[in-house]
């Protein structure tokens, strides 16, 4: 279980990163925290020609709060975010979801943008981004663009990122006054990939529910509010629309049922937690 050979570049500025991506495209992989990439390298599932280590690029290390969103650079580790004292107030959903990501020993290295780039359909951060309507900032030598999270995730470990693009940062909208947020997850054990993860926002009597672990990507949908009798029907339709599948750990039926039950419970919790 040892990686196949690759070159290693420890980039010191953003241009160096973009140069390698420009020249080698799909044969290059960004190495940030490495918590998703290294297992794939060790199992030889991935065989990049070159790894570009971005953790020493100063411009990618920043966290900026402009009042409406938190912009998180590509070299920001999950643990750094977790340690922000104002997180529970400014980023309620993020604060609730972060402890569910792997374990403390992997969040210490894993980055926010790395999890977004990996696009595991069960991962918490992509779900959160989609549920909150966040933005992914991409940069290549050709251009800079911002993509809505809902359009960024295109399938199983597949994203809208072009081979020469770097996910430079993601923006997560700040918690709005009057809105309630809640996150719930069911896995086989704590720290496992979610069988079903629910992220809910309730505002002005309406809800938005994001579901991870069921479809091939995180999906969010507007929903009737918790007191609306149409909610059950909407949850049922959502549960079917996600086309749940069977795997070793759960059945499609179980996933659908959790979308209905846990989805409702999460929306109700979000409504209770309105600031």
């Amino acid at each position: 279980m040892k990686p196949a050979p690759f070159d290693y570049v420890r980039a010191s500025d953003g241009a160096e990163v973009l140069d390698v991506l420009h020249r080698q495209g799909a044969d290059a992989r960004i190495l940030a925290g490495g918590q998703s990439l290294l297992p794939m390298l060790n199992m030889r599932l991935a065989r990049p020609a070159v790894l570009v280590d971005i953790m020493h690029v100063p411009s990618l290390q920043s966290i900026a709060d402009d009042g409406t969103a938190l912009r998180i650079g590509a070299a920001v580790r999950q643990a750094e975010l977790e340690a922000r004292p104002d997180l529970a107030r400014r980023q309620k959903l993020l604060a609730a979801a972060l402890p569910w990501i792997g374990h403390a020993q992997t969040r210490s290295r894993g980055t926010v943008c790395g999890s977004v780039a990996h696009a595991d359909p069960s991962a918490e951060l992509p779900l959160l981004l989609v549920a909150l309507g966040g933005t992914v900032h991409l940069r290549s030598r050709r251009r800079h663009r911002a993509v809505e999270a809902g359009a960024f995730f295109t399938g199983m470990m597949a994203t809208d990122r072009a081979d020469d693009e770097l996910i430079e940062a993601v923006s997560i909208p700040t918690a709005r006054p009057g809105a309630g947020y809640a996150f719930r997850e069911i896995g086989r054990r704590h720290g496992d990939f979610a069988i079903v993860a629910c992220a809910a926002v309730v505002e002005n009597g309406r809800a938005r529910l994001g579901i991870g672990g069921v479809a091939d990507r995180p999906v969010a949908q507007d929903m009737p509010g918790p007191d609306d009798e149409a909610l059950d029907e909407a949850l049922d339709a959502f549960a079917w629309a996600l086309e749940a599948r069977d795997d070793l750990h759960a059945t499609a039926r179980y996933r659908r049922e959790l979308v209905r039950r846990l989805g409702r419970a999460t929306i109700e919790e979000a409504a209770r937690c309105r600031a």
């Binding site: 279980m1 918590q35 643990a79 992997t106 210490s108 290295r109």
Partner: peptide, 24 residues
Amino acid sequence: CEHGVCGACTVQIDGVPARACLTL
């Protein structure tokens, strides 16, 4: 395990615990 799950290889890197098997 060399895939980051078992934790046997955990060391401290710059003061925080991390998996040595998921680090080059």
